[in-house]
Design a protein around this nucleic acid. Structure first.
Lengths: 127, 127
DNA sequence: AACTCTATAGGCATATTGCACATAAGGGAG
DNA sequence: CTCCCTTATGTGCAATATGCCTATAGAGTT
């Protein structure tokens, strides 16, 4: 989070890169596993995963969805029945679920690694 | 981690990007806080943070060190006293320690976010 | 007619990293 | 002495990932 209030450089530091790198895809897959829906709706629901509203770049989300479709993790179909502009409805595939499981393993490993780091950190900076 | 044994695509999936993104810098700073040393030695000691030997790209480490010096998080001085090729000895600065503290905050936030994700994941995939 | 909300998407720049390669000093084997 | 290995530091290039800005367009509201 790197609150840039005060002492260290006014502009930016490399730890300020929130949201987390490579965290969007697993969140989208988990949301799509709950229910099929479209990109704009997914964006509205990303706050649940710590993506503050406005922080989430729509372009990035749509690009992820198209790429996941290319990789056959999701499928899409246009929905023009409701009012308003056409929505592209996304649905997770079996392969998408597998990748989601792989993500869970990866993220669990990352969590462990961060915990190990923080233990060492606290050892070197007690109090 | 994404063990690619079996069902899902033979080539690669986007969760396979181990080691973690943006994790090298805090590890280097923490090691340098213990004791001043040079890049090659840091590389030897990165295994402690889950960087498997051989997995760590030397070029990436050296580039990080040079960039951190540019940002005044570390200072360096040549050491030609010992045998072998000259070593560039790095030392963490006060600013570097501040950034390390900021990293700890960031990583703690990331850990929490991953934990929250995994809770939701387990809710949707019990058993 | 103008404005807002919903909805999707592309272009461009930047950041981060991996892989391959270049350079160079010193020590040991033959 | 020469070849090779280990130590030690770096560069070049490509791929990946992301942020910001902009474009498009339907539908309802003022």
């Amino acid at each position: 989070m790197c609150q840039d209030q005060g002492s260290h450089h006014g502009s930016s530091c490399s730890c300020s890169g929130m949201p987390m790198r490579r965290f969007l895809q697993p969140c989208l897959l988990l949301l799509l596993h709950r229910r099929s829906t479209h990109g704009y709706d997914l964006i509205q629901n990303l706050g649940e995963f710590g993506f503050s509203s406005g922080e989430t770049d729509p372009g990035t989300v749509y690009r992820h969805l198209r790429k996941m479709e290319e990789e056959k993790l999701v499928t899409s179909a246009w929905d023009t029945d409701q009012g308003g502009p056409a929505k592209r409805l996304y649905q997770i595939t079996g392969e998408g679920e597998e990748i989601l499981h792989a993500w869970a393993v990866t993220l669990n490993g990352n969590k462990q690694r961060i915990e190990d780091f923080l233990v060492k950190y606290k050892t070197q900076f007690p109090g």
